[in-house]
Amino acid sequence: MRFRPNRNGINSLMKSDEAGAEVRRIAERMKAAAESTTGGDFRTDSALGAHRWRAAVIGDYAKHGDSEGTRRALLRGLDGAE
């Protein structure tokens, strides 16, 4: 027996309002965890892409004047999401 995924069904599910709400909710949880762990100022951004919802947690990059400081802020944000 061969499995064939229903691509149209999967794509429509990934673009549903419910999927978008879940993606945003998870990003907000990551933001809250990062802020409580690092004390930094984070924000979230989400959008419907060509095939799915996307979300990002953006750290306090403006406070770091160099690429290494930005990298440290990003890694602290990722650690806070664990």
Rank of each mutant, 00 (worst) to 15 (best):
A32C: 05
I10L: 15
V23F: 06
M14V: 12
M14R: 08
I26D: 06
G9L: 06
V23I: 13
R25W: 01
K31M: 08
G40L: 08
E35Y: 11
S12F: 13
V23E: 05
S12T: 15
V23R: 13
M30I: 11
K15D: 05
A34Y: 11
R29F: 02
S36D: 07
A32S: 05
T37Q: 15
I26R: 12
A27W: 00
M14C: 11
A21W: 02
A33W: 10
E28V: 03
A34M: 06
A33Y: 08
R29N: 03
A33S: 12
E35S: 01
A33V: 01
G20Y: 01
E22F: 07
K15H: 13
I10W: 09
A19L: 05
T38R: 03
R29Y: 01
L13F: 14
E18D: 13
T38N: 11
D17V: 04
N11R: 15
E18V: 05
A19R: 10
A19D: 09
R29K: 09
A32Y: 00
G9S: 13
R29D: 01
T37P: 01
A21K: 15
M14Y: 02
G20W: 00
D17M: 10
G39F: 05
A33H: 10
G9Q: 08
S16Q: 08
T38Q: 07
G40N: 12
D41C: 14
R24H: 10
N11D: 10
V23N: 06
A32W: 00
I26K: 12
A33I: 05
T37W: 07
T37S: 15
K31S: 02
E18R: 15
S16A: 08
I26Q: 04
A34V: 01
E28D: 08
A27D: 02
E28Q: 11
A32I: 04
E28M: 05
A32E: 03
E28I: 01
E35C: 09
N11F: 14
E28Y: 06
K15W: 06
A27L: 02
A21M: 07
R25E: 02
T37K: 15
E22M: 10
E18I: 11
G9F: 08
K31L: 00
G9R: 10
N11Q: 13
E28L: 06
D17R: 14
S16C: 04
A19N: 12
T37Y: 10
T38F: 05
L13Q: 12
